[in-house]
Amino acid sequence: MPAALDDFLWTYQSLIASLGVNGLLALSMYVVLAIGQLSLGQAAFMGVGAYASALLSLHTGLPFPLELAAAMLIPAAFALAIGAPTLRLSGVYLALATIGLGELLRIFLIQSDFTGGALGLSGIPAKAGFTLIYGCLAAATLALMLITRSRIGRAMEAIREDETAAAVSGVDLPRYKMTALVVSAMLAGLAGALNAHASSFIGPNDYGFDAAVTILSYALLGGVGSPFGSLAGALVLTLLPEILRPLQDFRLVVNGAIIVVAVLYMPHGLIPWRPLRIGARP
């Protein structure tokens, strides 16, 4: 590899990895938003996946794919527990319950010595390279694209547009909602595991309310019309702080302003187009 390219990749290694991880997080958010629900627990699901896989890496000799599976299944169990009571109610309840989940997770991680307390876990082996991260991202995007274009996708859109009408026309609301939440928790958990094994260092304060809000902003900035919208949102909001770095103190101010303007003047996100659907009329 030429030295200049090598330097470039080295310089932007964390950024490139973050782009992939944040893309996965945006997709995980998209899955929930696509059926008109709102979860502020994506950061918590991510944290559960990150800690689960990191602890496995540090204490066991399990093969990495099995660790990734655990990092997806454990958050899925959390999603089942939190979804059961709240998905029956209006969207706000899921949002607030997932905030509670995030804070409880943080409190647990801080007081437990096994998870390293406030100092977190370090020295996590660097098992997640670009190939793995972007492989996962591509697979998730492809799968979601196919789902969006299928009958399931049409049902999801119907739920998002009008729950009552969707239920009347025979869509099994509880099952769709729960499946979406569980899938989204699995994606977030996977993102967390990849992130932990790319950055080698995780802490209990990385998965709080702020992180949840950031993940939400990826998906909402991009729009929930298609998985690509969410991906674009993640791309913009991950690169933005880097591009705006010279603004120093005003960086986050600009970030916030961009979100406001984007939503006010583009209420359906950056990429509002819906994907063509198999069998749909043009």
Binding site: V213, L220, V253, G256, A262, V263
Partner: peptide, 18 residues
């Protein structure tokens, strides 16, 4: 959509605090 209002207040909060 309802979520757009939440998103706006979210962005505004970030803007205002920072």
């Amino acid at each position: 959509p309802e979520l757009a209002s939440l998103m706006v207040t979210l962005g505004a909060t970030l803007f205002l605090y920072t």
